[in-house]
């Protein structure tokens, strides 16, 4: 995949891009961009994939101008518009915090989104299933909550960090998490429940059976609120099904997107 640094409006946006065909946008989770991860590269086999880094993460700017979720949606509207103009609409795959963003974009801009895939999305809150606080738990606790098999995956998680992004990987991570707090602190609910019924796109919801950051019970909550959605729980994976259960993840996504 290629790394593209472009300016949209006045905002620098870094994206990983590759492939040809109908446009597919991938929005990453709250910790980091996965870089040219294997699942993204495989998606480029039959799709024009574009995976932008969120404002405030890595090398993408524009964070200071964001006040609330509407600013974020307008930012992504500008990112998606050109591709949508050419193809009518685009497919959106959003993971974790990116899943929350993708759902918001689909609710605010139904004209832009053909099909929607939400992977372990944040954005709702159930009192009967309170989410752990990803900013307060220790790194070992976070690792345990996020993987089905922490030993196998902790050291192998792909990321978009490159020399020059920040003084160190740790500083890059701090910067990313700081930006994520904008939408997740102290509770990752910015009113998405009110807007989900406005989503028109056909939606696939994917959760990892062993996700303890956003447990699969949230799949039901999303399904109930979305007019046209079905959900699938993938076994043997946690908060990152596209990494831990890559083949099963790709099979579900491809069969849904067609």
């Amino acid at each position: 995949m290629q790394i593209v640094l472009e300016t949209i409006g006045t905002t620098p946006v870094r994206s990983w891009t590759g492939g040809q065909g109908a446009p597919l946008f991938y929005l990453h989770g709250f910790e980091q961009h996965p870089g040219a991860a294997s699942f993204l590269r495989r998606l480029t086999e039959d799709r024009a994939v574009r995976a932008p880094e969120h404002p405030g993460f890595g090398r993408s700017g524009g964070f200071e101008a964001l006040v609330d979720i509407s600013d974020l949606v307008l930012h992504y509207r500008a990112v998606i518009e050109a591709a949508a103009a050419q193809h009518g609409s685009v497919d959106l795959v959003g993971h974790s915090l990116g899943g929350m963003f993708a759902a918001e974009i689909a609710a605010f801009c139904p004209d832009l989104v053909r099909k929607l895939v939400l992977v372990a999305p944040y954005g709702l809150w159930l009192d009967e299933a309170p989410l752990p606080d990803p900013f307060a738990i220790t790194l070992p606790e976070l690792t345990k909550a996020k993987w089905s098999d922490p030993e196998a995956w902790t050291a192998r998680e792909p990321n978009g960090f490159a020399a020059g992004d920040a003084p160190s990987y740790d500083a890059y991570r701090q910067q990313n998490l700081g930006a994520a707090t904008k939408y997740m602190w102290p509770i990752p609910d910015r009113g998405l429940a009110r807007r989900l019924p406005r989503v028109r796109a056909q939606t696939l919801i994917i959760y990892g059976a062993d996700d303890r950051l956003v447990p699969p019970v949230y799949a039901d909550a999303f399904s109930r609120l979305l007019p046209n959605a079905r959900s699938v729980i993938l076994p043997r994976c946690g908060h990152l099904p596209m990494i831990e259960a890559e083949d099963a993840f790709l099979a579900e996504v491809r069969s849904f997107l067609g």
Binding site: F135, A136, G178, T181
Partner: peptide
Amino acid sequence: VHPGFESVPGYRTA
């Protein structure tokens, strides 16, 4: 104090 509560990303400037 539980270490997770002593600071948080974004609290201190670089």
